[in-house]
Every structure is written in C-alpha cells, then in structure tokens.
Amino acid sequence: MSKIGFIFPGQGAQEVGMGQELYNKYPEIADYFNRAEEILNLDLKRICFEGPEFDLNLTENTQPALFTMSAAIDDYLKKQGLVPDMVAGHSLGEYSALTSAGAINFEDNLKLVRQRGQAMEEALPAGLGTMAAIIGLDIDTIEDICSKVVGVCEVANINTPNQIVISGEKEAVATAMERLNNAGAKKVVELSVSGPFHSSLMEPAVNRLKSVIENVEIKDASIPIVANATAEKVIDSNIIEENLIAQLTSSVRWVESINLMIDEGIDTFVEVGSGRVLKGLLRRIDRSVDCYSTRNIKDLEKIIGDLI
C-alpha cells in the first residue's frame, strides 16, 4: 500500500481563477472561502476568482488566498478518506502543512499568514530587494559566488539539484547574476517578487511576526511535518514555533525535505492547492515517485479514482 505525502505550494503558485471551479462544485470547499472572507473581512473570492492579477500578487493577499485553497482541498480529501502519512510545505506552504497536521487551526493560521504577508511586504522598502532563479549550477558554486558579492546576497530556496534561488539587495543580486552567468549557469532569471524573501533582510518581519506566533496556540502535530529550515521531521509544538520564526530568514531546503520523505517510505505525493509548481520540482528531484495535482475537478476525481 502506498504511503502518502501531502505537499503544499507557496507564493508563485497563484493564478487568477484559482479555486473557482472547486468553489462552484464542492460545498465543503466553498465553505472555506466564505469563512476566510468573514474572518479577514477581505474580498478573497473576487481576488482569487477574478483578480486583477496585481491584487492577487500582493503578498498580503497571495498568502491567505493560497492558504485558504490548500486548507479547503486538504480537508475535502481527508473527508473522502485520503489521509497523509507525512506533510511538508514550500515556504508559505509550511503553514498549510501545519493546519493539515492539526498543529494550528484554520482560523488562527489564516490570520497568521495574512500578518506574515504584511510583515514580509513591509520588511524592506519596495525596490531595494529582489530574488533570482539560477538553473544549471551546483549549490557550492552559487554559495561561493554569493559570499564574495558586496552586500546581502544569499541562497533562499534549494528547489531542485539544478534550480536554486538567491535573495538579497537588488544591486548585490544583480552582481551575483552576472557572475553566475559567467560561471556557466544555463539560465539566470530575476523573479517578479516584492521582496528578498528567505534572506537576512527579512529580519524586521521576524521581529514583528515573532510576537504574533507566540500568541497563537500551536499543538503537537498529529503526523510528522518536514520543516523548511531544517529539512527534519517535527511533531513537537515548541520546535514548530522555533522553525516558523527561523523560516523567514532561512533557506527553503526543499530537495532535502523531499528526499527525507522518500527515505521514510513516501512513494505518492499530492500537491494540495493551486498550480503544479511542486509537481514540476518533484520530477526534477526523483522521477520514481508519483505526484497528483489538485487544481480542478478533473484532478480531484483522478485522485479519488486512483488513491481512495
């Protein structure tokens, strides 16, 4: 019998129209969007279903939008009988994983991700920080080049063995991009983001979010979560809290996280939420495992037919 891992996407997975088909078909999923609007006093359905893209891409909107969709689909799948053996989430997705594992309830976590988005948006004045994806260079070369750049430039996401994201001050990242190109990278692309996420420049967001997290009830998880900051399994509520605070300035160690899950026997992954970003990354980490998407009715029907 398959061991199931739920993985939850972060920023970059959003798209205008996300969740609308599922909202119209499944009352259980619609309930989550309706509750989220009431809790946040935010026109979340319009932002998700109609856009405009600018509104959806504002970090303070993107994060609750993605979290709500993931939490709704997660709950729907469990009610159909599909329960994960282990969970992990990419950046923001770690918050969705925590709700899936019973560590933080939906309402508290929704408020938390909204404040996380606001804190990240306001951590640095717009235009001073950025991120870039590097394709086709190893981590050691990237870290070495980043360490020799004047200013802040750090590894933010280790998404696959050959796709690594750097983050930092705009000029420092631009310099690193040029040097990484010269070092033989296949592709170097600046990302369309509002800040230098998962770098030390997020320290102001840490200070703001720490007090918020400390006032949220965090329980021991019912199943193991693989943490971004450590790529280790965690159940203990105190360690979960430490990891959430560390996560804002730490690298997302996604390759190690997925490999750990596979080593633990997970052979079937379900990307719970919008998009297919994590499915694409998984194929570049290990093609031997299966991965299902959950973006639409067709996706959910396939999962129910194959796995339940």
Rank of each mutant, 00 (worst) to 15 (best):
H90A: 08
N228M: 09
S2W: 07
N109C: 14
S222C: 13
R179P: 13
D138H: 04
R287E: 09
N157F: 04
E264D: 08
P204R: 11
A13N: 00
E169C: 06
T294M: 08
I304N: 09
L128V: 01
Q11C: 11
G51Q: 00
W254I: 11
K219T: 09
A88D: 10
I304M: 04
V152H: 01
N109V: 06
K3P: 14
Y95V: 00
G275M: 01
E217D: 11
N228P: 07
N57D: 15
L56Q: 03
S167Q: 03
D306W: 02
K25P: 05
L248E: 09
I218S: 01
P224R: 06
N41H: 14
L244P: 05
Q63T: 12
D263S: 11
P27G: 08
G5C: 07
N207P: 08
R284C: 08
E53P: 01
I104W: 05
E38L: 11
F33K: 12
A176C: 14
I303H: 06
G17P: 04
G273K: 03
K279M: 10
F6N: 02
S147H: 10
I245L: 09
S293T: 07
G305W: 09
F49P: 10
A133V: 10
L278Q: 03
K233W: 12
I258S: 11
V270K: 02
F67R: 13
A156P: 04
D299R: 00
V189D: 15
D144V: 15
N162L: 03
L124P: 04
V289F: 07
L248I: 12
I47H: 02
N159G: 06
V252W: 02
A227C: 12
I158E: 04
E122D: 02
S91G: 08
I223P: 00
Q247C: 03
L112Q: 05
T268D: 15
I73N: 05
A174I: 07
G93I: 06
